[in-house]
């Protein structure tokens, strides 16, 4: 279990102590879930989205027609920093 790699992919900084703590915990979780592999599902169609019967019969597409959008002020309203109509973020290349 490469906890450091996973943390890195998730942009999380973790300490050596945390690595020592999480490694067995995450291994336990994976092992627990792996019990599902004991079932033979070769002849079962994979189900995606966890749909109920009602959900499965719900229309899941929309017509290609514009609906209202936010104003730039609304769009930026929840952002920590909005400048000149843009989201402002730390410099990226």
């Amino acid at each position: 279990m490469d906890v450091r790699k996973i943390a890195n992919l998730a942009h999380l900084e973790i300490t050596d102590d945390e690595v020592a703590l999480y490694t067995p915990q995450m291994a336990d979780i994976v092992k627990y879930v792996e019990q599902l592999n004991e079932l033979d599902t070769d002849s079962v169609e994979p189900m995606l989205g966890g749909l109920t019967v009602e959900g499965a019969s719900t229309d899941t597409m929309r017509m290609d027609e514009p609906r209202g959008s936010f104003t730039p002020e609304e769009a930026l309203g929840e952002a920590p920093s909005g400048v000149a109509g843009h989201f402002q973020v730390p410099k990226v290349l």
Partner: peptide, 17 residues
């Protein structure tokens, strides 16, 4: 995946939801 218009040249962040 949403009803925001696809257009270029609009004000920044004006076609968002």
């Amino acid at each position: 995946f949403c009803g925001c218009a696809v257009e270029t040249g609009g004000e920044p962040n004006s076609n968002t939801c």
